[in-house]
Write a protein that binds this DNA or RNA. Structure first.
Lengths: 199, 199
DNA sequence: GCTAATTTGGAGCGACCGCTCTATAATATG
DNA sequence: CATATTATAGAGCGGTCGCTCCAAATTAGC
């Protein structure tokens, strides 16, 4: 019994993601956002509460549409060692084709906006746990299958992979160079190989 | 033939570093800075030009006082393999004792302020090259001495170490946990070991 | 001690910030 | 159709932003 929304929430959220991803939280004004989302300021506040609420929704949607989608797509269809490699190589590919140098909204949030907002921090920390858990599942399965080294614990290897992932995404924003990112990855993938078995 | 400065430039720059390091570029106002530096706004503009000029000077001083100091201190006095380990472990130690979760001003700058300011970008990119070059010198010497693996090129290994360094510093801002950072490091240090020699 | 040069503190500029208010438009229900 | 309810557009709120101006203060050279 009321006037319906004139905009598609997913579509305007995508527009908000675009701005926040590129410029970060502080450097993006609500007017920038409203323009990009093609809605009036009042509609933005009516639908999302405030700027922080919009950012939280945008970040969650970003994580769903990029990282979680990638994990859902790769993990069930590939052997564990290949899944890790495909995951990281896909991120490098995205980094190299990112003409705007947006980097990774997760890392950008972790650095810029999470440290001073408990809500943002929670979103980021929980998701980092998810990624670590994904790597841990892959490494554990790989060790069981004998395709991943047992020279280190699965837990340590998963943490290293998480670290490398974040490092790649930092470099993507400043030095998105193929030689750098692909060179960086080679020793890490070699690290997974079981050195006690013949190559 | 003029009135002299009443403040010590290094001291007020340290105060500026404190604010920028903690809150980033956008979220720090010139009034915040002037308060922390204990000088008037006009003095700040007189001495540093504008906010961007102050940030550039503060970032350069940060890099000199932390990273470059660390390289100068460690590299000449340690064998290459130990130098790499000491460098990374020192950064983890600093990350774990960082109660304010400031993380790393280099990484914070790379993510937040460098992408849209050519001056900042240049400072960050040049310094990342310096760190990569430091790792490359260590790895090359280590390979020559037979204490670092030849399974990968020195160039690739140096890039991986750079990536891990950046990853550690991202995590330092969001999840500064000992088990995470130290666990992350173990496989990376193992990666340097020459797997063809006995352990 | 006078002049030229620079720094200092404080007031204040115009612009923009996040956000809200008001009036109007559009819908579901009775 | 009348009413209740929500969404919309736009004006505009108080506050803060980066920055500048100005008068007073402090120095070195003559």
């Amino acid at each position: 019994m009321a006037r319906p929304r004139e905009f598609d929430e997913a579509a305007v959220l995508d527009a908000a993601i675009d701005r926040f991803w590129l410029r970060g939280y502080e450097a993006t004004s609500v007017r920038d956002l409203a323009d990009e989302m093609q809605i009036a300021g009042a509609s933005l506040y009516n639908a999302f509460g405030d700027k922080r609420g919009l950012y939280a929704k945008a970040l969650n949607r970003y994580l769903d549409q990029t990282f979680r989608e990638r994990i859902r797509r790769i993990e069930p269809t590939m052997p564990p060692r290949e899944a890790i490699e495909a995951f990281l190589k896909e991120i490098i590919k995205r980094s190299l084709s990112d003409k705007q140098r947006r980097g990774c909204m997760l890392v950008n949030s972790a650095i810029e906006s999470a440290p001073f907002d408990p809500g943002f921090l929670s979103i980021v920390a929980v998701f980092l746990d998810e990624v670590e858990a994904f790597f841990l599942r892959c490494v554990t399965r790989g060790q069981k299958d004998g395709v991943v080294t047992r020279a280190h614990s699965a837990s340590d290897l998963a943490k290293s992979l998480l670290g490398i992932l974040l490092g790649i995404r930092v470099l993507a924003r400043v030095r998105p160079e193929r030689a750098l990112l692909e060179g960086l990855l080679r020793p890490v993938l070699g690290l997974l190989d079981d050195t006690t078995s013949p190559r």
